[in-house]
Each structure stands twice: as C-alpha cells, then as structure tokens.
Design a protein around this nucleic acid. Structure first.
Length: 491
RNA sequence: CGGGGUGUAGCACAGUCCGGUAGUGUACCUGGUUUGGGACCAGGGGGUCGUAGGUUCGAAUCCUGCCACCCCGACCA
C-alpha cells in the first residue's frame, strides 16, 4: 500500500528516511541541507521542550535570547573555538539586494558590503560571553544560570533528517560561576539532567561519560556526553555538557571582584541538546509499522476509532467516546476521537500505528452491545477487550506500562549490544558482525584513537563516568591501561 | 571537495539507446456501493519533462554549459 515502510533490518537508513516522511515528522526542504519539521513532528519536539524546560527551571536556570549574528572578530577570540567551527560557518557579507542593470534579475548590491562579516551562530558562546562581560562585576552577580532556545547553523557536508541538518533547533545553557568546582558541579548536574530526561521521558538508556581530547568541544576544558544505542548498532551522541574552565572568560575578559576585592576570571559551562533527539527517539524504539512513541512524549496518548455503518451507530459511539475523552482528560491525557467517515477503520489503524500513538481504542456495534472496547497497545501490538467501566483506571496503567516496557526493551537491547573485548581481532570481529558498544582498554593516546578510527571507523564515544579502575592492556598498542572506554561506530 | 547516480503530475516511477508533440501506479475531485486491519466500480482534473543555449521541419529524447538533490568518502550535535 501507499504508506508501507521498507524493512528496518534490510536498509536501516532507507527505513529511517521513509519513516520520518511518512509519519509526518519532517522532510527535506528546498533549501540546501535544511529540514521542514511538520506539525506532527514539531508537536513531539514541543513535548520535549516542555519537559526539558521544566527540568532547567527546577535546577535554577532562566531563559533569555541572544542575537543570531556573531561578528567575525568575536569568533576569533577563542583560538580553539574558532578553529573548531571555522570550516562550517555561514557568513553574511552584504545587507542589500538590487535589480541588475542588464535586467537579468536581482543581484547582491556590491555597494552594500559589510565592513565586518557576520557569522550565523553555529553556537552562542562568543555572543553570550561578550554580553556576560557587561553583566558580571562582582561575586554577587554569580552564578549566572541562563538557557536559550534557539536555532543554529552549521554548514555540514552531508545532512540527514534530524540527525544532522544545516540549520537545527536546540537549547544551549551558558553559565558563569565564581569557582572551578561550582562550574564542574554544574556541568555534571546538567549531564545528569540530560540522562534523566533521556531515560524517563524518551525511555532511552544512555551512558554518561567524558569525551577524549580529540572529541571534545572546541574551547572546552572537558566535554561530557550522553551516548545512546540505536537499533542498527550505531551509537548516537544525544547531548553534551562542557566545562569551559576560564577559557571564554579570558577570551572575553569576564572578571569579577571576589569577597577579598580581587579580580578573578569567572568559570563557565555550556550544555545543549538539539532536534537530534528526535532522531534518537525514532531510532531507539520504532519498528517496520512506524513510530513507537513513549507515552510521556506522545502528543496524542489515545486515539479512539469508531466502527460504524450508519449515522445512528456513529452517534451512539460518539457519546461513549466523549465519556472516555473527558475521563482521561481528568488524568492529564490527550485523546483524539477520529470520526472521519472518509477513511475505513483499517486505514486509521495503520495510520496511527505509523504515527506511534501509544494506545488505540476501537468501538463498534458489538462493543456497544457488550459494554466493552477493544484496546490495542502500539509497542507490542497486543489487543484485548476491556469493559467500558474499566477505562478510567486501565488506560493510565497501560500507558505507564508502555513507558516502562519500551525502556526495559531498549535497556536490554543496549546490554546485549555492549560487548567487552580484549584484543584487536575480537574488536574488529564484534564490530563487523554485531556492532554496538565495545568496552575495551585504551592507552590514552590520541595516536591510538586515531589509528583505530582509521582502521575500523569506530570512535571512542566516551570514558564512562562510572568506569571502574581495572588494570589491562590497550587492545591496539598493548600499553598499560587503567580502565575501559566505550568504542562504537556512530552517527 | 573527490567518486558514483538522479532530475518527467503532490509522491513513486516508465518513456531517453533508436527524435514525431505526455504515460503508469498512487494521491486528489465527483457519484454510487462499502466500513471489526490499509475498500471497490465508474467518471474527472492536474505536467514550462531541473535550467540556459545549440542541432533539427520537429527535442523529454541528440550536443554543450549551469543548477539542484541523493548515495559512498572526508567533516560533524
């Protein structure tokens, strides 16, 4: 049929692309590398935003908004930062168009060249730290705990819906502190917030850890991340939290007077998650029938599909549906009653499965007679009849069960896909045959990391925060190592 | 930026080798019959064939330039 998806096992990329389009989440736009997030996809992103925003506020942060444009000179102030982002910047050079004199159309007016080019922000550290300079004078101004919801542009060579687009939506937190310890604590706190969000809301287990020197954020002292496992055995970096040390404070001369009246540079952090989380959500749970949404992020929790032959039947069913709707609304659930008579029930069943609605209730003449409804859950596709009176208690319990079930499923999948390996032969073999995370000893050098990447395309995803001390030898160089790190091929 | 591929109706594609004025499926519209897992029948509307130029009586088709997108690398949230 028209909306059938390709098999997930056969071609994961194709399956992913088709699912994103057919479930009405997003599509490629006519603009290079950019994406249109469609209303249904955006409503899921809004649920994510809400949950995250609440968590940010609970940890003392407030929202603000900073400019889209970064003067070129700002970017240049932090050496490693500019080096990291220089290759992928969109640059505004002119501010006016005009009609071509030969009538060939609209051209850039060469007279309107900017004296200093403006970079479309790839991230906002530079704009924000140049502002913080004005805001921070004394220890009394600290800590400064600000988050921004924004769009950023990174001119990537190759793009993929949600995972890597030229423009993407995200949140970026930027904080300033009086002491190093406080900034480190903040960095780890926000990493914890991300991990909690991924696990509790997205039902997606993540490893928390630290990036290696070569993988860390340009301008950071330390980069921490959460890493998730996708169903095809590739890892996905789902969020990052950076301890910036005094790097940006020094670059932008942000100093404060401490209690002794001495000037000190402030300590910074930044942390972000993006619409990439949408890609993670899709790839963590969905199947060949379409999207599988965790109830906590589903824009529609329950859809009611009526099965009817006549107007009278529809009317009787509608009454029941309204009762269900208001009962579940009281418990905070969103219910959709799809009473369209332009589509058959079978079509609707398939459509809501494609869109990942966690619970479907079907009501037909038989149910009206027996005082029942048919309840189908999206995650396992199980169907059962329950009595009409049980809905108000059974459905909330079912939704909770779905949330737990998909988390448990993802967790056991990740466990299965995390393999300790002790030799390079084994490393290559497991990577090729099974994929997933490989827990292995590494000598700590960038050279070894790079060579393994060259040979296998696997990178060190992180040094897990909870890695236990364990003496071993590096799988590649044979040199001594004191703990295992996580390798994987990644998106 | 290197290597490969594709641009034809909203979407998916055929037609291109061998030039003769636009097709199929699906979606859409109308009418009817249907409705417990993606309905069926009949009728209908919709296309500057990516773009600019060239060859020709005649170009979706041949030639040249340009543009866009996709896949594989390098880069990355």
């Amino acid at each position: 049929m028209a909306k059938e998806l390709p098999s997930r096992k056969e071609d994961y990329s194709l399956w992913y692309n088709e699912l994103v389009k057919k479930a009405d989440l997003a599509e490629h736009s006519d603009v290079r590398g950019c994406m249109v997030i469609k209303p249904y996809g955006y409503s899921i992103w809004e649920k994510m935003q809400q949950a995250l925003d609440t968590m940010f506020k609970e940890t003392g942060h407030v929202n603000a908004y900073f400019p889209l444009f970064v003067p070129k000179s700002f970017l240049a102030r932090e050496a490693s930062h500019v080096e990291g982002f220089a290759k992928e910047c969109a640059i505004v050079t002119h501010y006016r168009l005009k009609n071509a004199e030969d009538g060939s159309g609209i051209i850039v007016d060469p007279e309107a060249k900017l004296e200093e080019e403006l970079i479309v922000r790839p991230t906002s550290e530079t704009v924000i730290w140049s502002t913080y300079r004005k805001w921070i004078q004394s220890y009394r101004d600290l800590p400064l705990l600000i988050n921004q919801w924004a769009n950023v542009v990174r001119w990537e060579m190759r793009t993929r819906l949600f995972l890597r687009t030229t423009e993407f939506l995200w949140q970026e937190g930027h904080t300033a502190h009086a002491t190093s310890q406080e900034a480190v604590d903040e960095t780890l706190q926000m990493l914890g917030v991300y991990a909690q969000f991924a696990e509790e809301f997205m039902a997606m287990p993540v490893y928390k850890g630290k990036k290696t020197e070569s993988e860390k954020f340009p301008g950071a002292v330390d980069t921490y991340c959460i890493e998730a496992m996708m169903q095809d055995g590739k890892a996905l970096q789902a969020g990052t939290s950076h301890f910036l040390g005094q790097n940006f404070a020094k670059a932008f001369e942000v100093q404060f007077a401490n209690k002794e009246g001495k000037l000190e540079h402030v300590w910074g952090t930044s942390w972000g998650v993006s619409t990439r989380l949408m890609g993670a959500l899709i790839m963590a749970h969905s199947d060949d029938d379409g999207l599988v949404l965790p109830p906590k992020l589903a824009p529609i929790h329950v859809v009611i599909v009526p099965i009817f032959r006549s107007e009278d039947e529809l009317k009787a069913i509608s009454e029941k549906a309204d009762q269900i709707k208001s009962a579940l609304k009281k418990s905070g659930y969103t219910v959709k009653f799809d009473n369209r008579d332009t589509h058959k029930p079978g079509f609707k069943f398939a459509e809501y499965e494609l869109k990942g609605v966690p619970v479907r209730i079907a009501i037909g003449p038989r149910d009206l007679e027996n005082g029942t409804v048919e309840v189908a859950r999206r995650d396992t596709k199980e169907k059962k009849l329950i009595s009409f009176d049980a809905i108000a208690t059974d459905i909330p319990a079912l939704l909770e069960d779905i949330q737990n079930n998909i988390y448990t499923k993802a967790l056991s999948f990740r466990k299965e896909m995390t393999t300790p390996v002790d030799s390079f032969e084994e490393f290559e073999k497991v990577l090729e045959e099974k994929g997933g995370f490989l827990s292995a000893h590494w000598d700590g050098t960038a050279e070894t990391e790079e060579k393994i990447k060259e040979k296998t395309k696997a990178t060190i995803r992180c040094i897990p925060n909870d890695a236990q001390a364990e003496n071993g030898t590096c799988i590649f160089s044979g040199k001594p190592s004191s703990r295992r790190v996580l390798f994987a091929r990644a998106y």
